[in-house]
Design a protein around this nucleic acid. Structure first.
Length: 446
DNA sequence: AAAAAAC
């Protein structure tokens, strides 16, 4: 099957070829003809399946005819996060360079007036997060009565984030006669109910999880203590020892922890940027840009970056914290091993996390190996000596007395290891339980 | 338990 058989316009086919794509993915192959036939589509697909192009490409073909009127967008795409919205906008740039379409990105955290000016000029494609869209609507800067196509992307995530009331409200502002595309990764009952209210006689298109996800990602667990300093030390050791390292996303459960860890890594001369929802939008965009361009090797992030972000070449994902929700784990590690590339996902597990790990193993239906289990026992002399942290860090509540390094024996099952650790009589972590490949130092550009 | 999203 080739793109030329799907009914796309010549301009769009030329753009696809220029982008270097040869073959449609299963979701594109199944959805594009229905979208072009103006059917409603219920798409069940994860990110990484080519879902975005499955609606961008036929939209470009459809929109070649007709023209937008001031303040009346012709199509509307709703996304749960600002970064995802921006990413969809980039797709229109990429495939739409032969078309003269007006694309507007309507998200929070950036100038309202610039967006307003764009709306006034008339937009063919409006890509929005719900809050800012409703803001424009309430101020009377936007009418949805000429909108022919509504796309709800990442519906299950919108549900998680409590956006469904906003989405339902927006749905009522768009004419009943519109075409609707509804994408979700999972189909819990609540999402099914919402899909039923939004869609009329939809075609159901379902693709399995990208086979790439499980197969190309090496997953590992690494045991650590509960002390934050020790966790950070474990992380630094994992990064320095990572095999085939190119870059990494490091996930934390809390925004505060993202900021803290980012500071600490920068102090340790790592080339790191941070991304979470409390940063202003320019900082968020700058961080993501730097990471995408390879200027920053480490991206420390909250779950704002867990789903959908498409960075084709991430070699490692580290979970600094075990996610509380097992499906977040799946989304986080899916940031690596993309587009057929190999990836490694290492989760740092403190004693209190065993329940969360069990839930993840249940969901993924696999036992994730502990790094210790495949250990090649290294002698003390083999372990690289880690640079002593700079003074500032030691003075920030992380004082520890200098002690002679002592090898620590690993409990056979770290999840059941006694909670009270006998004594902390080493300044450097014990590396004797690590496989040899993790002990090889890797230099990271500062 | 937390993240995300509007001024």
């Amino acid at each position: 099957m080739s793109f030329s058989q799907l009914g796309l316009s010549a301009k769009v086919l030329a753009a696809i070829e220029a982008a270097g794509y040869k073959q449609p993915t299963p979701i594109q192959e199944q959805a594009i003809p229905h979208v072009l036939a103006r059917r409603d589509v219920l798409g069940i697909a994860q990110t990484g399946t080519g879902k975005t192009a499955a609606f961008v490409l036929p939209m470009l073909t459809q929109l070649e005819q007709g023209r937008a009127r001031a303040r009346m967008p012709r199509t509307l795409i709703l996304e749960p996060t600002r970064e995802l919205a921006a990413q969809v906008a980039e797709n229109f740039e990429k495939y739409g360079k032969n078309s003269k379409l007006n694309v507007a990105l309507i998200i929070g955290g950036v100038s309202f007036d610039d967006q307003d000016a764009k709306l006034l000029r008339g937009v063919d494609v409006l890509i929005a997060t719900p809050g800012r869209l409703l803001d424009h609507f309430e101020r009377g800067r936007l009418l949805l009565s000429a909108c022919e196509l509504l796309i709800i992307d990442e519906a299950d995530r919108m549900l998680d984030m409590g956006f469904i009331p906003d989405i339902e409200r927006i749905g009522k502002l768009v004419p009943f006669t519109r075409q609707t595309l509804f994408f979700t990764a999972t189909m819990p009952p609540e999402i099914q109910r919402i899909a039923d209210t939004f869609l009329h006689n939809p075609v159901r298109v379902e693709v399995s999880r990208p086979a790439t996800a499980a197969a190309t990602i090496t997953q590992l667990l690494c045991h650590t203590g509960r002390d934050p300093h020790e966790k950070r030390e474990t992380l630094r050791r994992l990064i320095r020892g990572a095999e085939n390292f190119k870059n990494a996303i490091i996930f934390c459960n809390r925004k505060r922890e993202v900021a803290l860890l980012h500071k600490s890594l920068v102090r340790h001369k790592f080339n790191a940027v941070a991304l979470h929802g409390d940063l202003d939008q320019s900082a968020r965009t700058a961080a993501l840009d730097a990471f995408r361009k390879g200027e920053a090797k480490l991206l420390i992030a909250s779950d704002v970056a867990a789903r959908g972000l498409d960075i084709p070449d991430v070699s490692h994902v580290f979970n600094f914290d075990v996610p509380h929700h097992a499906d977040d784990y799946v989304h986080r590690i899916g940031r690596t091993g993309r587009a057929g590339k190999l990836g490694t996902a290492i989760t740092i597990v403190a004693p209190a996390d065993s329940k969360s790990v069990a839930a993840i193993e249940k969901l993924t239906n696999m036992t994730i190996p502990w790094m210790e289990k495949s250990a090649t026992v290294a002698t003390e002399g083999d372990a690289p000596v880690e640079a002593r942290p700079p003074r500032e860090e030691r003075s920030r509540g992380e004082h520890r007395r200098d002690r002679t390094p002592q090898p620590r024996r690993q409990h056979p099952d770290p999840a059941r290891a006694p909670r009270s650790r006998p004594q902390r009589d080493h300044d450097e972590p014990d590396m004797s339980h690590l496989p040899a490949f993790l002990l090889r130092p890797v230099s990271i550009k500062a």
